[in-house]
Design a protein around this nucleic acid. Structure first.
Length: 742
DNA sequence: ATAGGGTTAG
């Protein structure tokens, strides 16, 4: 909108309607009144550029801006955090109003605080001629909220001498207490409490609530209870605070008990009470009580409130009941970013990563507010989908919006690593000031599954040098690194030192890693011995690892034991049948082999279709075995034929994961059309000759394709990276990073 | 005019 001149004809009629009918007086409008009303209207709509224009016109027309207009303008600038607009309006005020601005200064002060400029705020505060309690509260809370508590306290002492109304101003204390809660400064809190008592505000309900809250959230539950119990009337706020305190102290039963007491005393419940108590039910894994509380919220008509609906969604997600979660979500009348983040992470938790991404894109296109939780889930989804494009885009996007925090940072390390870009993962890690346990773990796991054990273990050592303690997941990464590199002795030593040296109690997963280490190294008896002697019931992974080793090291006797246990635990996993078939077949025991084939057929089991894909210029190209659908199929196959001349000896090739589903061993000679070969060949002909090729595959790489990829990397000089269902293989000049050890 | 509570993630 451009106003050529200050013509009131251009102001919509409804604007002027607003000012006359309410006043009974004759329609004598103050000069400039309409202009000021228009200014306020623009401001409330957040149209700050038009405000600026309009102010100029008012100046030219000699119309002054009313104090009420200034108030609204400053409020708008604060709300929108528009510091430069705020400054120019402040300038305008100083330029045009010569007399003392008095109470308006509080709004200016508030504006600078809201815009995050403590420097400007302080300057205004010091230059103020007249300071009242409100002025002090504003400036003190600004420092306190920023965590600059010592300055807030200094101001507090300074105030003692200059303001007399302190006895009647509980807001001072409430203001000071809130940030203490946030930063958990218990000792300071106690001092303020004594101040409160000395100033006779000990029985003030609002102050009491704030103090009980402060004690509860600083973790001093006894103190909180003392204050809480002595409060003559406790409102929902006080009860909520106590429940939060118990929850943070992991005393969920106490929190629930308090809730029951609250209900019995007939305290009116509001939406915030439901937020915390639903979280408690989720933590207690108490579906029944949660459902009852859900029903209670419906009766009160609160379930459509975002503060109730959102934790309800989360509650049902925790129980894996996604249908109920969605139903709860749909009841929310005005979902906010938290609601969306619950539904997005819920989708991630049930493996619906595409759906998460879809919702995310939709929210972005609609301009809905996003938060760091949403980005963390999206990084997780991109990791699972290996979607580097979207992941990197979301990364840049999150930075622009200032929505990257420690959670997102470590999720990003994992995302880049799983998308095949260990180099980016490292860069993301290296950019951290002080990586915590999870970030270190993410980079260790990254190097481990890319087969770089030396680096992974060196990160583990550096982590300890930095004084960061490893957790259970860290050791999974460490042991995986050992496993992928054949570090048998080291692996066992790490397992043995976990409890004593690091205080991390090993779980069955850690033992499984070591079973895997032994099995891969051909120490099959040791592996079986460990399975038998470990302080846990062996699980699927224990036997799978052993079976894998029996296959690589051709031991049908132990393989039989592993398979027997595996079939009991997981009769529908086709991999067991296939490996056993191959194992017997390769030893020439055809009858036993046939037995497993037959069993598989009888149980009507079908193998997941082998599939590989490669992304070129942002487009995904997907291949299945023997696929001829691709427009460049002819070129792909001729490339493969050229590359395969050295593979005549494929005769004795065995049945692989990929072959089995399509049928029979007679496809011996057809190994050349395995999906990953198609993807590699396509990568070769469709990317620049110096670019690395990154192929993803849903199943484990077979031996022949692994050899093939090595060969191709030697002949063409290309770097080829293949991610199979297990790990990453980096092929360079005829060698693989896994040292044929996978 | 100033002031109190909750829910989401690696």
């Amino acid at each position: 909108m451009t106003l050529k001149s200050l013509s009131f004809d251009q102001i919509p009629s409804w604007v002027s309607l607003k000012c006359s009918p309410s006043s009974r007086k004759a329609p004598q409008i103050q000069p400039g009144h309409v202009a000021n009303v228009h200014l306020v209207s623009l401001s409330k709509q957040g149209k700050l550029r038009e405000v600026d224009e309009f102010l100029k016109h008012m100046d030219e027309a000699g119309i002054s801006v009313s104090p009420r207009s200034y108030k609204t303008l400053f409020e708008t600038c604060g709300r929108l955090q528009a510091l430069s607009d705020g400054k120019s309006i402040h300038d305008h005020l100083r330029r045009t109003v010569k007399e003392p601005t008095g109470l308006l200064d509080n709004y200016v002060l508030r504006m600078y605080c809201d815009c995050g400029s403590l420097v400007d705020a302080r300057k205004v505060f010091e230059e103020m001629l007249e300071r009242n309690v409100v002025s002090w509260v504003i400036i003190m809370s600004a420092y306190a909220e920023e965590g600059i508590l010592d300055e807030a306290i200094r101001l507090f002492s300074r105030m003692q001498g200059s303001v007399t109304e302190i006895r009647s101003s509980p807001s001072i204390y409430i203001t000071l207490l809130r940030p203490l809660t946030k930063f958990s400064f218990l000792e300071l809190g106690k001092q303020i409490h004594s101040h409160v008592i000395r100033n006779g505000l000990g029985s003030n309900a609002l102050v009491g609530t704030a103090i009980a809250n402060m004690y509860a959230k600083c973790g001093w539950l006894e103190g909180a209870e003392l204050v809480f119990d002595r409060m003559p009337e406790k409102n929902a706020v006080a009860w909520t605070g106590m429940m939060v305190g118990y929850t943070q102290a992991e005393k969920l039963d106490n929190a629930l008990g308090l809730f029951v007491k609250m209900v019995n005393q007939g305290i009116e419940m509001d939406e915030f009470v439901f937020s915390i108590i639903l979280k408690v039910c989720g933590g207690l894994e108490d579906l029944n009580v949660g459902r009852q509380i859900h029903g209670c919220s419906v009766k009160l008509g609160l379930d459509s409130d975002v503060s109730v609906g959102t934790p309800l969604v989360d509650f049902y997600v925790k129980f894996g009941n996604f249908t109920s979660a969605c139903r709860a979500f749909e009841r929310i009348s005005e979902p906010n970013d938290v609601s969306w983040s619950c539904i997005i992470s819920g989708n991630c938790q049930i493996g619906e990563f595409e759906e998460s991404v879809k919702i995310f894109k939709n929210l972005k296109s609609k301009g809905v507010v996003l938060n760091s939780f949403i980005y963390t889930s999206i990084f997780q989804a991109c990791a699972a989908l290996s979607d580097l494009n979207l992941g990197a885009q979301a990364h840049a996007d999150a930075i622009k919006r200032g929505l990257v925090n420690v959670y997102g940072e470590s999720a990003m390390i994992t995302m880049y690593s799983r998308c095949g870009r260990l180099d980016y993962a490292y860069r993301a890690f290296a950019s951290l000031d002080r990586p915590d346990t999870v970030a270190w773990t993410a980079i260790i796991c990254g190097y481990a599954c890319h087969g770089n054990a030396t680096e992974a273990l060196s990160f583990f050592n550096r982590m300890q040098d930095c004084g960061v303690r490893p957790n259970a997941v860290t050791f999974i990464g460490v042991l995986t690194a050992c496993s992928h590199s054949g570090l048998v002795r080291e692996g066992k030593q790490y397992l043995d030192s976990m409890r004593g040296e690091y205080g991390v109690v090993p779980t069955v997963d850690h033992y499984d890693c070591v079973v895997d280490i032994y099995s891969r190294a051909g120490l099959l008896e040791e592996a079986l011995e460990l399975i038998k002697s470990m302080p846990f019931e062996p699980d699927v992974m224990s036997w799978k690892s052993l079976l894998g080793g029996c296959w690589t090291h051709q031991n049908p006797e132990l393989g039989k034991i592993a398979a027997k246990n595996l079939l009991q635990l997981e009769p529908d996993d086709t991999a067991t049948y296939i490996v056993m078939f191959n194992l017997y077949a390769s030893c020439g025991k055809w009858e036993e082999a046939a037995h497993f084939r037959r069993m598989m057929a009888e149980r009507n089991l079908r193998k997941e279709i082998g599939c590989s894909w490669v992304t070129v210029k942002g487009r995904l190209h997907r291949f299945t075995v023997g696929d001829r659908h691709h427009p460049l199929a002819e070129q792909i196959y001729s490339t493969l034929r050229e590359l395969t001349t050295s593979y005549e000896n494929a005769d004795n090739a065995l049945l692989t994961d990929e072959d089995v589903w399509c049928g029979l061993p007679e496809r011996k000679e057809q190994l050349l059309d395995h999906s990953e070969r198609l993807a590699i060949a396509f990568g070769l002909i469709s990317t620049p000759s110096n670019a690395p090729i990154l192929v993803f595959k849903n199943l484990r790489a077979c031996k022949d394709c692994h050899d093939f990829a090595k060969q191709v990397s030697r002949v063409t000089g290309r770097e080829i990276v293949v991610r199979d269902s297990n790990r990453f293989h980096h092929f360079r000049l005829g060698e693989c990073s896994c040292n044929d050890y996978w």
